[in-house]
Design a protein around this nucleic acid. Structure first.
Lengths: 161, 161
DNA sequence: AGTCTATAGTTGCCTAGACAACAAAGAGTC
DNA sequence: GACTCTTTGTTGTCTAGGCAACTATAGACT
């Protein structure tokens, strides 16, 4: 006989976290696909759009996302091919390149965001009452700050503020 | 000029959700890798271990995870190759196969779980006080039940209960 | 100046997994 | 029985992205 650890309630809690998040992510992905965007491409465009001058260095994009620098290279290759992003040389460090969101890139975000926000309302925010939502966001921020101490690379302010 | 939707607070909320979850997932993945398990392999083993007779049909595994049936075939191929799972024909439907966790599979879970639970404590549960945790779990369950209505395929009880 | 070390980005190679096509078997329906 | 439609699992093919190797540049030290 084996241990009863498999039924530990902490596993249930983390399982709820995973199922809730992945369920949301799947719904978002379906809507993004209607606009020919992969979730990671949407995330990169969003981070660029929210950054000063609509640009971030490749390395900073890597630090802010789940991607390695290799992965960033390829995502930016695709977005560049589709005209949503372009590369710009860094004037002070000749090793570095900025990824810069283009006007087309911002147009694509404008097209996607209303539907995306509607899904957030429908499946997340609208399901919780005010107190529940506040408590949840506080808890999420606590966990995020703990597990992602360097997620603000390249931005002046902590992300999510 | 483009819209200000990119700075909508609802995007901040969902961004916190994503960063918190993905940050946790990265820490779990590192510990699982020490035991030569990919996150999806761990999830499959856990779901088998918690199911009656340690078995689930391929289709049910697909419904309970983010994988397509194609993906389930390949994960079970790998786990079977490593001796952690075996296939068993379904006696009542000759199209169906059960994936069954082996004794070695349970041993692997026993080896992984103490460290995994410690990480859950360290980065999630231990960071929140009792009320916060209760509120968070309630909220997660609400969202999970909404976005994953069919995540209990093949089990007698709703998952996460 | 030269040398050493660290960092930025790209590329070759490999694996994971989605999609679509498929084969086999169940479940009607006549 | 034959015929049709649905469901289960596997496989060929393709893309995404990690790892390690590489080039180029920066920075520090002598």
């Amino acid at each position: 006989m084996h241990s009863e650890l498999v039924n530990d309630e902490r596993l249930t809690a983390i399982g709820l976290f995973a199922e809730a998040y992945e369920g949301l992510a799947a719904r978002f992905a379906a809507q993004l696909a209607e606009h020919h965007l992969a979730p990671i491409e949407f995330e990169v465009l969003m981070r660029l759009a929210r950054s000063p001058d609509g640009q971030l260095r490749m390395t900073d994009l890597s630090a802010q996302t789940t991607l390695t620098t290799s992965g960033v290279t390829r995502v930016i290759d695709r977005l560049n091919r589709d005209g949503l992003v372009c590369r710009r040389a860094c004037p002070t460090d000749r090793r570095s390149w900025y990824a810069v969101i283009t006007a087309d890139g911002r147009k694509r975000l404008d097209a996607v965001l209303p539907g995306h926000l509607a899904l957030i309302e429908e499946w997340f925010i609208g399901r919780l009452d005010g107190d529940q939502l506040t408590a949840m966001i506080d808890a999420l921020r606590t966990v995020r700050d703990a597990v992602r101490p360097d997620a603000t690379a390249g931005s002046a302010l902590p992300s999510g503020e």
